[in-house]
Amino acid sequence: MRISTRFFAAASIAALSLLAGNAMAEGEKLIIGTEGAYPPFNNLEADGTLVGFDIDIAKALCDEMKVTCEFVTQDWDGIIPALQAKKFDAIIASMSITPERAEKVDFTNKYYNTPPAIAVPKDSDLTEATTESLAGKVIGAQGSTTHSNYVEKHMAESELKLYPTADEYKLDISNGRIDAVVDDVVVLSEWVKSEDGSCCKILTTLPIDEVINGEGAGIAVRKGETELAAKFNTAIDAIRATGKYKEINDKYFDFDVYGE
């Protein structure tokens, strides 16, 4: 579970946001909100291009629904309020389906499900991720995420340090300012394999807490817009059946991120 760029005129927003919740005719437009700071799922390149698994899945779903989608980036901690304010029509940004969020938005079925993990410096003396072994350690996580909630609950004797994006916690652990970080296993695995993440290693994956981690990442829509959610669900099933999902999955990962 994030540099704001707008790809459309302000005058278009009000008109386009009316589409959500209504039957969508072929060729209509849908505005998709994402973060753009969470590789390999979604990331805003220097040239303004959005790339990543979330982005490719969103494009495939839009093609399946026969609608035109445009993207807008939004800082993570304001992404649900921005959806509620009709700045976009749906969120496709690796958002975990949790009971707390479900009080504010409606979700589609999952489109992937991967567990959390903890990463530490390569020279760390940590050998396990228990409450006792992590006591007194400073652990970084992105704020307003399931991962920060996980640390609060399961690593209560540690000091939690929150960051606005994953980039900031990566910088701090690289420079020895914190002892560990918690995030999605895919995000951390891709990072430690890169030059920027050469400082660190995955200590272990963490047991899923269904209340905190939810049932996977879903697409969020405004409360009551069940018809739009249903259309996304139909499209998710379709790209799974046609092999398009696997094609996108294999572009980024060497295992099936859809999960059980």
Rank of each mutant, 00 (worst) to 15 (best):
M1F: 09
I3V: 11
T5Y: 13
R6T: 06
F7Y: 15
A11G: 14
S12L: 09
A15D: 02
A15S: 07
A20F: 01
G21V: 07
G21D: 12
A23C: 10
G27Y: 09
G27N: 09
K29G: 13
L30H: 01
L30R: 01
I31Q: 02
T34M: 02
E35V: 11
E35M: 12
E35K: 13
A37F: 01
P39C: 06
L44M: 11
E45W: 05
F53D: 00
D54Q: 08
I57K: 07
A58N: 04
A58F: 01
K59H: 10
K59T: 08
L61P: 04
E64D: 10
E64H: 07
T68S: 14
T68A: 13
E70T: 12
F71S: 02
D75K: 11
W76E: 04
W76Y: 12
I80N: 05
K86G: 00
K86W: 00
K86A: 10
K87Y: 00
F88E: 03
I92S: 00
M95R: 14
I97Y: 00
I97N: 08
R101V: 04
K110P: 07
Y111S: 00
Y112C: 03
N113E: 09
P115D: 09
P116G: 05
P121Q: 09
P121C: 04
D123H: 14
D123V: 01
D125Q: 11
L126F: 07
T127C: 05
E128V: 10
E128N: 11
T131D: 14
S133E: 10
L134D: 02
L134S: 05
K137I: 12
V138A: 15
Q142M: 15
G143P: 00
S144R: 09
S144G: 04
T145A: 12
H147Y: 15
H147T: 14
S148N: 12
Y150P: 00
M155C: 12
M155Q: 07
A156C: 07
E157I: 03
K161I: 13
T165D: 12
A166K: 09
D167Q: 15
D167W: 08
L171N: 11
L171T: 10
D172A: 13
N175H: 08
R177L: 15
D179Y: 03
D179W: 01
V182W: 00
V182R: 05
V186H: 05
S189Q: 13
W191V: 03
W191G: 04
V192K: 00
G197H: 03
K201M: 06
I202G: 01
E210A: 14
I219N: 01
A220I: 06
A220S: 12
R222Y: 06
T226R: 13
E227S: 10
E227C: 00
A229P: 06
A230H: 13
K231H: 11
F232D: 08
F232L: 10
T234F: 06
D237W: 01
D237R: 05
I239K: 03
R240I: 04
A241K: 11
Y245F: 13
E247G: 03
I248V: 08
I248E: 02
E260Y: 08
